[in-house]
Simulated assay, not measured.
Amino acid sequence: MKAHRAHVADAWREARTVRTDDELDALPGLAIVKPFAPLSEAVLASDLADDRLDNPDDDDLPALILWTPKDGAL
């Protein structure tokens, strides 16, 4: 059972991972993402995309999608 839970968690994490600027740009602006970089905080996808325009070499990607408007209420 543990192996199944780990597999489901890994599959969910992979499906909710943004790896490229194009994937980030495709998200709704109100989506909340958290870069995998240490000490990073959750931010709006639109804010992260704007930051990457100024600093494309930052280690903001990959990032985990924590919430989108399609997910419903927080």
Results as ranks from 00 to 15, higher is better:
M1N: 12
M1F: 06
K2E: 15
H4Y: 15
R5Q: 15
A6K: 14
A9V: 13
A9Y: 05
D10C: 08
D10T: 14
D10L: 14
A11N: 02
W12Q: 15
W12E: 15
R13H: 13
A15N: 05
R16P: 01
V18S: 04
V18Q: 01
T20Y: 12
D21G: 10
D21A: 12
D22C: 00
D22G: 03
D22A: 12
D22W: 00
E23K: 02
E23I: 06
L24T: 03
L24C: 05
L24Y: 03
L27K: 03
P28T: 04
G29P: 06
G29R: 09
L30S: 12
A31G: 04
A31M: 01
I32W: 04
V33P: 02
K34F: 03
P35Q: 02
F36W: 09
A37I: 07
A37W: 06
A37Q: 09
L39I: 06
L39H: 11
L39R: 11
S40Q: 08
A42M: 09
A42C: 09
A42W: 11
V43D: 10
V43G: 01
L44Q: 06
L44F: 06
A45L: 02
S46V: 09
D47T: 11
A49C: 09
A49I: 04
D51N: 08
D51C: 01
D51F: 08
D51L: 07
R52Q: 09
R52L: 13
R52I: 09
L53N: 11
L53H: 10
D54I: 06
D54R: 12
D54W: 11
D54N: 10
N55P: 03
P56W: 05
D57N: 08
D58V: 06
D59A: 13
D60S: 13
L61H: 04
L61C: 10
L61Q: 05
L61P: 03
P62S: 10
P62Q: 08
A63T: 03
L64M: 13
I65H: 00
I65R: 03
L66W: 01
L66K: 05
W67K: 06
W67N: 05
T68R: 07
P69N: 04
K70Q: 14
D71F: 06
G72S: 01
A73H: 10
L74A: 14
